[in-house]
Amino acid sequence: MQTRDTATPRPTALVTGASAGIGREFARELAARGHDLVVVARDAARLEKLAAELTSSHEVHVEVLVADLSDRAALGRVAERLSDKARPIEVLVNNAGYGLKGSFLRNDVADEERMFDVLTRAVLVLSHAAARSMAARGHGSVVNVSSVAGWLASGTYSAAKSWVTVFTEGLSSELAGTGVTATALCPGFTRTEFQQRAGIGTPGPQFLWLDASRLVRDCLDDVERGRVVSVPGLQYKAIAALLHVAPRPLLRRRLRASTGR
């Protein structure tokens, strides 16, 4: 293992939803690329386990920050960490998220509100805190995990992800010339715990399923290239291109046919 020049501090990345799935892969890959980490999620035990793993494997410093991003006070603490001038964050990965099994009208509105807060409000608040601090320093990257579902018309998860993508595109334009980049990651089906935890099964043929570690590597390479929207996998690049030109009424009719509504 190569030794590091201790006179040069490592850059620090903050990853939300880091305890599992795509967020955990972001933490692992960023550590492998020489970043210290701030890992954020609700599950303290999982975060501590991840911190021990990354410290042992990559000799990086890992700060554990337990927070439920649907709680405004907890979200505020994460935003304060991103704004800390004495401990700057060079990369923010807004990954925290989940889906609900039922349809919008069948779900409890309180559950829908909590999901909305995690998928959209948290992204807005944390991106604001990070991007302002990064722009003041003249460098940094914001990565917002969206989804190809954002180009569909399939309920509140789809709507939230559409917001994340458009928001990130707007943020990227606002950050032009500051040395700070903003990238929306738009994956499709990915092999993680997401489907199991949401109780929604594993739909579609196997060729549609992405490997989470490869997805993250490709995304971070796109970030380095300054790409605003990162769509991993040739299959999803093709699907995204089709969705951009498909008439919206056709997409809505296809959804009704597939769900029986």
Rank of each mutant, 00 (worst) to 15 (best):
R33S: 01
G34V: 13
G34L: 12
G34D: 13
G34F: 11
H35E: 01
D36K: 02
D36P: 02
D36A: 03
L37W: 00
V38G: 04
V39N: 00
V39T: 05
V40Y: 02
R42I: 05
R42A: 06
R42L: 06
R42F: 05
R42V: 04
A44Y: 02
A45D: 09
R46G: 14
R46M: 09
R46F: 00
R46D: 02
L47E: 01
L47Q: 04
K49D: 03
K49S: 10
K49M: 02
K49H: 08
A51C: 00
A52T: 07
A52C: 06
A52N: 08
E53D: 09
E53R: 07
L54I: 01
T55Y: 00
T55E: 03
S56Q: 12
S57T: 09
S57F: 09
E59G: 11
H61V: 01
V62H: 03
V64A: 04
V64D: 05
L65M: 12
V66Q: 08
V66L: 07
V66F: 08
D68E: 06
D68Y: 02
L69I: 06
S70W: 08
D71F: 11
D71H: 12
A73K: 15
A73H: 15
A74N: 05
A74K: 03
A74Y: 02
L75W: 11
R77N: 14
V78D: 11
A79W: 12
E80R: 09
R81I: 12
S83C: 06
S83W: 06
D84Y: 03
D84A: 05
K85Y: 01
K85I: 02
A86L: 07
A86W: 04
A86R: 10
R87Q: 01
P88M: 04
P88S: 04
I89C: 02
E90M: 02
V91D: 02
V91R: 05
L92K: 07
V93A: 01
V93F: 00
N94C: 07
N94V: 09
N95C: 09
Y98V: 05
Y98S: 03
Y98W: 07
Y98M: 03
G99T: 12
L100K: 12
L100H: 15
L100Y: 13
G102P: 13
G102D: 15
G102Q: 15
S103W: 08
S103D: 07
S103V: 06
S103K: 09
S103Y: 10
F104Q: 15
V109M: 14
V109Y: 14
A110P: 00
D111Q: 15
D111P: 07
E112H: 15
E112A: 14
E112Y: 14
E112W: 14
E113Q: 15
R114D: 15
R114V: 13
F116L: 10
F116D: 03
D117C: 08
V118T: 13
V118G: 12
V118Q: 11
T120M: 13
T120D: 14
T120L: 11
R121G: 02
R121P: 00
A122W: 08
A122M: 08
A122N: 09
V123P: 01
V123A: 03
V125C: 04
L126Y: 12
S127V: 07
H128M: 13
